[in-house]
Design a binder for these strands. Sequence first.
DNA 1: CTGAAAGCGCTTACAG
DNA 2: CTGAAAGCGCTTACAG
Lengths: 323, 323
Amino acid sequence: MGRSKFTIKDIAKRAGVGVGTVSRVLNNNPNVKGTTRERVLKITSELHYVPNGAARMLVSRNRSLSMVGLLVPLLENQFFYEILKALHDRLKKENFNLMIFNTEEEYESAVNHIVEHQMAGMIVLGDRPLSEKDRSLLRSHRLPYLHVDYYGEGINFVRYDNYQGGRLAADYLMGRGCRNVILIGEAETSLQQKDRFRGFADRVNSVHYPLVYSEINIPNGSETYGLSKRLMNDPDLDGIFYFSDEMAYGGIQAKRDMDSQVSLIGYDDIFPTKFLNLSTINQSSRRLGTEAAEGIMELIGNRDHEGVTVQRVFMPELIDRGS
Amino acid sequence: MGRSKFTIKDIAKRAGVGVGTVSRVLNNNPNVKGTTRERVLKITSELHYVPNGAARMLVSRNRSLSMVGLLVPLLENQFFYEILKALHDRLKKENFNLMIFNTEEEYESAVNHIVEHQMAGMIVLGDRPLSEKDRSLLRSHRLPYLHVDYYGEGINFVRYDNYQGGRLAADYLMGRGCRNVILIGEAETSLQQKDRFRGFADRVNSVHYPLVYSEINIPNGSETYGLSKRLMNDPDLDGIFYFSDEMAYGGIQAKRDMDSQVSLIGYDDIFPTKFLNLSTINQSSRRLGTEAAEGIMELIGNRDHEGVTVQRVFMPELIDRGS
DNA sequence: CTGAAAGCGCTTACAG
DNA sequence: CTGAAAGCGCTTACAG
């Protein structure tokens, strides 16, 4: 039961060798006599010795760090969690670890931490861009980063095509004969939402289908049950497109309780959605996470080559569950 | 656009001061003349200078690290995600960061990493105990840790009472007049599952209620829809207790599709459950996460006092949605 | 195969 | 208010 912290020096002294030798043993350097190695190993284990990670990092500037920082607005919807799982799985295979930073307010302290600890790379979940300051910091430290679900010129990202998803949603509701549709979104409008709703509008207009639509945006994270119920009182309303499945759940419940005929469609196809028989636009969180992991590893591997860019866009899919 | 890494020495040289002064500026030490401070700050920002975290940690052995390591079997159910959110929220308020380790296979490398990097504390989600080796490693480094959902003598934990939850489930099904019940669980039996099912059995037996029950365990993560459907073909079966809400979702769907009268109850009351009108046993993920955060911070604060123990047990609650 | 020494980039008394 | 120096715990040539 060692009392406190031992260092490589303590080990060396007890083993009657120099610190260099202990270091070699610890790093599996083959140039150590078998008996010496044994002796050192015995002592390190008896003392529960664990090398000081900070000292190790400080000295081995070249050692490729195996840590990836992840910026994620944790409170957002479950879709992010599913991405997180896939991301972690894939990274794990290559022996990368993930450090998670909650970034509801601002990125800066997280970005600083990541740079300060010389992580291998960084992934940003969600639709917010980095500040110019953060970007130039990362650039000057050659720290590669990748966005998931955000995009722009010259930046690295993987994402699903939300515009296309909006078009699919329009197809679905038009296919069910809707003429009077409401789009329910979040008040703090995200890029995704804009793209989805724009895709919806463009699709409706492009085919000259006689459909009237309007948009209602509610505070992020608020319940949709009451609102949906009230809307369903309007006999003219015949369709609702929710920005996300989580928002649509309240709608499904309202529809059931009101015995309403309104057509509903959500977005994401997260795990519980199929059990609610909710039609939706599927984007695979697993795929997104996996591709993000592979993307960042590619960027890390090519840190020194200029101009390597990862930009991948996937197509979502309509899932018709007759809702 | 700095090309590469600058050190405190570079800053000092350009500012025409010693490294000590630069360090003081960086650490907001008040004993620096205003103009000197300005000059240094200007240069650090021009050069995108960020101090080397490893060097910093190495030298300031006393600085209380603000990192908590979290061991979590990521692939498990959504309940963990909700805990994760709450945990993160609470920790954030006290300026702790969270580093997440996936531990589906073994804990050892994660524990090593946490010790090596001198984190402030560690939280273990899930029902697996640490190995004796890991425990003595943590002990000898005075690194406090806390289990969520696992428990035992002399260890720190916060958890819900699963045994009690099982009793509530029994009450629910007995209240609906069930006589013939099946418990569906996971083949890789967890402590939680054992407690829940044992609570169920004890409750039924303690009141001499004429109820026959049997247990079916299926591979973790597999679908329950097909199984539930088959079971519902048996006209004698009138109740199913699922180990988790996620497992129960397939059952709810089967019940609807078969138009069955079987009574169903899940466990957890995760977010989507209410929309499925599934009765369940509520345990608040938010509370568990928050308490875990507070528990580990308490342990961290009392690192040097022997015998401080955190052991908190919360009572779950029956949510009757008539399923 | 091994030891002594330099050095990684910081912080912090110490002496002015 | 500030500089020079010691030291944090490692790794890695270098010289044997």
